[in-house]
Amino acid sequence: MELSTEQIQELYIFTRKHYVEYYDVQTELVDHLANDIEQISEENPNLSFEQARDTSFKKFGVFGFMDIVESRQKQLGKKYNKILWSIMKEWFTIPKIMITASIFMFFYLLMSLNINIHYLSVLMLILAFIDIFLASKLSKKSKKRFKDNNKKYLLEDIIFKVSAFSSVIIFSNIFNLSAFLRYSESLYTKVFVASLITLAILYSYISLIVIPQKAEELLQETYPEYKFINNL
């Protein structure tokens, strides 16, 4: 007997209760459970829907859905990094490399001028604040998206939340780096610090601005169901 629409909805709730918060992962599990429940009920017609569901869930082992969620997180995390890396590479080819080089030269020259090292720290602090501002804006946007659709896709979460936070973490560390310059003013130190700052700026710009702008396109490409679910 085919499960009713209400029972399918119940299965979505069931997966959510078992720590699967992403709609894309839920959908695959719901279909699997539904098929199995139908099969179990056919073999044992006396079992209730809940009993058949629990029998099916047991097959997932003691960790339940956790392994599956983790593997999906790992794979989509990799996908995200690939996207980030391919955009990052553009900044090291003509014409964008001119901008990258200018950012690098700006910081390198700033360090070479005989100015108080605190100015650099202040500049880093300002950049860190801009980063936090952009990250919190993204996180708010992600909450609003969830409220509007009531569905959260794993890749969407990575784009809007996870990456934003890693950018903030990188920047707070770069801020500490400028202290490094107090101990050494060699050419290598300056080149090293200026390169790291340049990379951090690029990373932040890409993860906080470029990729979120492409979010819809990336989600449609990853999830064939994305388009027609949102049009339902």
């Binding site: 085919e2 499960l3 009713s4 629409t5 399918i8 959908t27 695959e28 719901v30 279909d31 699997h32 539904a34 097959k59 997932f60 082992g61 960790f63 392994d67 599956i68 983790e70 593997s71 999906r72 794979q75 989509l76 990799k78 996908k79 999830y223 064939p224 169901e225 679910i229």
Partner: peptide, 29 residues
């Protein structure tokens, strides 16, 4: 086992060896 199948499918998909399609079958995807 379910716990082994889906991680394997997801890995093959991430490696570009599998593509996915989603269809509405009855009342579910």
């Amino acid at each position: 086992t379910e716990g082994a199948l889906y991680p394997a499918l997801h890995k093959l998909e991430a490696d570009g060896l599998l593509a996915v399609e989603v269809a509405k079958v009855g009342n579910r995807l």
